[in-house]
Each structure stands twice: as structure tokens, then as C-alpha cells.
């Protein structure tokens, strides 16, 4: 390993710093794992996430927010990796959080009262704007229950 290659401890610490200090992410019960430059998101089921107690189904606001959080975290992680890799001695700081310009959600099926998983695809990351598509699923990856696309302001 060369001197310039960040250790996995550095990456773990940076990833934790990005994802573990935002109160709303903990409130919703979302956790992340890094998969190279990709982010894998988990929404852990609790009864507090229910929006329709009769079905029962997850609240569309909670699952929509889950996608938005996943999109933003995926963007911040890619930007953080760029900083970590480009600076010989990374100072531990991050770029400002991307700001959502718009977010458009398709509700495909009702969310079942169980854990959900999400993955974002960054379609384009320009100097000022990023376009992101994000999907969440439960039992089968090929059957998303909610999908969204959004634009984010990076600077």
C-alpha cells in the first residue's frame, strides 16, 4: 500500500462522520454501508414508520424521505472520496451538503411493514447540479416499491 492510499480505517471514519451525525437520519432509523464508491441504505422497520395501520403500510412520507436521504448520502460520499483521494493529507472536512432542488417520487406498491433497502444511481454530477435516480425494495431487488429522481445543488 502506498503512503497516499487512504486506509480502510480512514474511509470507515469518514463514512461514519458523514452518516452518523444527522439527527433526522437516526430518527427515521436509516443506516448505511459503503460499497466502494456506492452507498447501500437500510431502513429498519419499526411500527413508528406506519402510515396506514389498516393495510398496514409504511408511510409514504417516511419512504420518500428514505430515498431522499439515500440520494444525498450517495452524493456526499462520492464527493468525500474525491477529497480523500485528491489531497495527500486529507484535513477531515467535507464539501457542503447538497441541497435538494426538486424530488419526484413514484409510489409503485405499498411498503410492507418490514425492512427496506435503497440504492441511488448518480446519472450526472456536474459542477453545480447533480441528477440522481433512487429506488427502494423489500423482498425482491427487481420489484421496487418506490422510486424517485431528483436534482441537487452542489455549490
Amino acid at each position: 500500500m502506498s503512503m497516499d492510499t487512504p486506509t480502510s480505517q480512514t474511509l470507515d471514519d469518514a463514512f461514519a462522520a458523514l452518516t452518523e451525525k444527522i439527527p433526522y437520519i437516526s430518527f427515521l432509523g436509516v443506516t448505511f454501508q459503503r460499497r466502494g464508491d456506492e452507498v447501500s441504505a437500510l431502513l429498519t422497520y419499526t411500527p413508528d414508520l406506519i402510515g396506514n395501520p389498516i393495510l398496514p403500510a409504511l408511510h409514504g412520507g417516511a419512504t420518500g424521505a428514505f430515498l431522499e436521504i439515500t440520494a444525498i448520502t450517495s452524493l456526499t460520499w462520492v464527493a468525500a472520496l474525491e477529497r480523500i483521494h485528491s489531497e495527500p493529507k486529507w484535513d477531515g472536512t467535507f464539501a457542503p451538503q447538497p441541497k435538494t432542488v426538486d424530488f419526484s417520487i413514484d409510489y409503485l406498491r405499498s411498503g410492507k411493514p418490514q425492512d427496506a433497502y435503497a440504492r441511488a444511481i448518480i446519472l450526472r454530477r456536474g459542477r453545480r447540479v447533480a441528477n440522481v435516480r433512487v429506488e427502494a425494495w423489500q423482498d425482491e431487488r427487481s420489484k421496487p416499491f418506490i422510486a424517485a429522481h431528483g436534482h441537487f445543488l452542489l455549490s
Binding site: I22, P23, Y24, H59, G61, F66, Q97, F103
Partner: peptide
Amino acid sequence: PRLIGNPETGIMHGGAITA
């Protein structure tokens, strides 16, 4: 405070506004 999206500014997370 549980709904904060940016701990530096104290701004409510967009996700809460989505809900």
C-alpha cells in the same frame, strides 16, 4: 431537534417536509 438535517445550521431535514 430530532428532525434536524444539518447539525451545523439546525435546519429541518427536507424528508420531514416530504412527509
